[in-house]
Design a protein around this nucleic acid. Structure first.
Lengths: 69, 69
DNA sequence: ACAAAATGTCAAGTATATTTGACATTATGT
DNA sequence: ACATAATGTCAAATATACTTGACATTTTGT
């Protein structure tokens, strides 16, 4: 699964990892892990992130070939 | 988090839990748990379900008041 | 140049998503 | 009425999301 969380984090207020983490109530390490990719976060967190960054889950996280069954 | 997976499952080809489970490669129990609600599935599975049911994650899963920080 | 903020990364612990198996109940088709 | 498919539910095991803490490196502002 690919993500452009980092891109949206910069484009949307240029917010720090820590600040974003606080906004959605997770640890900074979780944000780091998500940005690093290959991290299958929960849909609730994905919805919160999309909400705070003013976008959609589909825009923030994209399935790759290997993800489809 | 609220879900209308069940509604979409019926409206979209009237597919059985087992068949949907097979489509996204999880066990039927996982589908049951998701439909029962209060189940925080992974975003990858959410994206797959939305894809197979021809809708979006946002349409399939909605945050509730208590989910917002 | 210096201090402070932001980021990268490792490791160990806790919470919970997902699986497997099994059985009971309810719906559906013939 | 009967067989089969679909669903509800429980319990135990495994995989993994997420946390906490700690330290090093890089970036940014003055």
């Amino acid at each position: 699964m690919k993500t452009n969380l980092r891109k949206y984090r910069f484009e949307n207020g240029n917010i720090s990892q820590q600040k974003l983490a606080d906004l959605v109530n997770v640890s900074r390490q979780t944000i780091v892990a998500i940005e690093r990719g290959d991290y299958n976060l929960s849909v609730k967190l994905a919805l919160l992130l999309a909400d705070k960054l003013g976008t959609t889950v589909e825009e923030l996280f994209k399935l790759e070939e290997k993800d489809y069954v």
